[in-house]
Simulated assay, not measured.
Amino acid sequence: MRLLVVEDEVGLAETIRDGLATDGFTVDLVHTGVDGLWAAAERPYGAYDAIILDIMLPGLSGYEVCRRLREREVWTPVLMLTAKDGEYDQADALDLGADDYLTKPFSFVVLVARLRALIRRGAPQRPVVLSAGDLRLDPARRRVTRGDDEIAVTPREFALLEFLLRSAGDVLTKSAIMENVWDAAFDGGPNIVEVYIGYLRKKIDQPYGRTAIQTVRGVGYRLDPDGG
């Protein structure tokens, strides 16, 4: 089994490589995000069974490497190495298409177990593009489009629109939206949902004369499955 390790701490990278080699893996080692992207994307698909990718890399961050790989439809399993206690690092890594993560410092035994589990599962299938009429959301590429226009949205707006699209046609309460789009640590009130619904309407509806996001008074919101 061949792995790609992208890690800029040379000593750690060589330790990982030597340990994995002892466990029977063949390891290619690079130290920058640019080299990691090239190795993973330009070699024949399937050249690697998995990729170990650090977040903090020179040239391109691990986030950007992962995002670009998924954008190019390279679905090789990615295990990201994140900062200690970096829960936002972990959430961002998964949002951008990583399949698993480990926090530094980590147990080598756990690293090998996680890698074997990823390899057993194999490369994930490309996520399904969600749509309502000509409104489309691509989870893999993190893109939102209306017709031929690409629409720039924030990560929170993206998460909200994705939740609405996955439940298109259903009426969603503010509390359901809060539970699925905001994390448990958020201490603001439910009116934040109304604020972000307004942001989305200004981007995906109003410029196009549409009303895809509908208010159901006294209950919550509904996304028209026909796109408004």
Rank of each mutant, 00 (worst) to 15 (best):
R43A: 12
P44H: 05
D49P: 00
I51V: 14
I51D: 01
D54Y: 06
M56N: 13
L57I: 06
G59N: 08
L60I: 13
S61M: 05
S61N: 08
G62S: 06
E64Q: 15
R68I: 12
L69P: 01
R70W: 12
R70E: 09
R70P: 09
R72F: 06
E73T: 13
P77E: 01
V78N: 00
L81S: 01
A83T: 12
E87T: 14
Y88M: 15
A91I: 12
D92K: 15
D92E: 14
A93W: 00
D95T: 09
D95S: 12
D95N: 13
G97V: 04
D99L: 01
Y101M: 04
T103I: 10
P105I: 15
S107G: 14
F108H: 11
V110Q: 12
L111W: 13
V112I: 13
A113C: 08
R116M: 04
A117R: 13
L118K: 03
L118G: 01
I119R: 03
I119P: 00
Q125E: 14
S131W: 04
G133M: 09
G133Y: 13
D134S: 12
D134L: 12
L135F: 08
L135V: 13
L135W: 02
R136E: 07
P139Q: 02
R142I: 12
R142F: 03
R143H: 06
R146T: 05
V153W: 01
R156C: 02
A159Y: 03
L160Y: 05
L161F: 02
L164W: 11
L164H: 11
L164Y: 06
L164Q: 01
R166C: 03
R166S: 05
A168E: 11
L172W: 08
K174C: 06
K174L: 07
S175F: 07
S175C: 01
A176G: 06
I177R: 04
E179T: 09
W182G: 01
W182K: 07
A184P: 05
A184F: 13
D187R: 15
